[in-house]
Design a binder for these strands. Structure first.
Length: 195
DNA sequence: TAGGCCATCTGGTCCT
DNA sequence: AGGACCAGATGGCCTA
């Protein structure tokens, strides 16, 4: 990497001719040459243009690296924003990238299920449908105590517990443990073939 | 020390 | 042509 630039520095006279005229006449620093030296000079001229191309390529690469870095930073910012809207875990450990995506996926699924079951129950009882349980509606804010996210408690992917059965009486926090458990560990049973 | 996670670089491909 | 996107490679840091 340094060698490229050190070449340029050491041969700065041969690079970046001031004009096309000078280019056609040969290197600026060159003195009148016999034929053999002129051939040599042509080779040097070729080498010079090659090196110029190298420099241009190098600059493009550096710019591309910079863009790629920014792109990845944007991606990480978006991932952080996603972590911000997901329920915070009691242990406050930062989710890895893959965990964040998996958890978000399952969290959306769980919310959808909550709506679906609430709709079903509303249809049974004749009550107006409950879109979101009071508990779950408050739960997503990180650090919120409205629904603490217990790592203990029973979890069942086939028959998860919901606190929306009685809108006026939020269920125990343990009812949401399946969310966390399934999000990170039992996720595959929910969405087969996602991996 | 091995394995996981991450940031960065890089070359290829596609799109505008 | 240049930028965006992607995947592979690499090296550093951290943890069990």
């Amino acid at each position: 990497m340094d060698s490229l630039y050190s070449d340029i520095d050491s041969n700065s006279c041969d690079f970046f001719p001031h004009s096309e005229d000078e280019e056609s006449r040969g290197p600026r620093c060159a003195s009148p040459q016999p034929e053999q030296q002129q051939k040599k000079q042509r080779r040097r001229g070729r080498a010079r243009s090659d090196a110029t191309v190298q420099v241009v390529k190098k600059n493009r690469r550096l710019k591309a690296n910079d863009r790629e870095r920014n792109r990845m930073h944007n991606l990480n910012d978006a991932l952080d924003a996603l972590r911000g809207v997901l329920p915070a875990f009691p242990d406050e450990t930062k989710l890895t990238k893959i965990e964040t995506l998996r958890f978000a996926h399952n969290y959306i699924w769980a919310l959808s299920e909550t709506i679906r079951i609430a709709d079903l129950q509303a249809g049974k009882t004749g009550e107006p449908p409950v879109l979101l349980s009071p508990c779950l509606a408050e739960a997503p804010s990180p650090g919120s105590d409205a629904c603490s996210w217990s790592s203990s408690g029973s979890s069942s992917s086939s028959s998860p517990a919901y606190c929306a059965s009685s809108p006026g009486s939020p269920a125990a926090p343990e009812d949401y443990s399946y969310l966390r458990q399934d999000a990170l560990y039992g996720f595959r049973s929910f969405v087969p073939g996602i991996y």
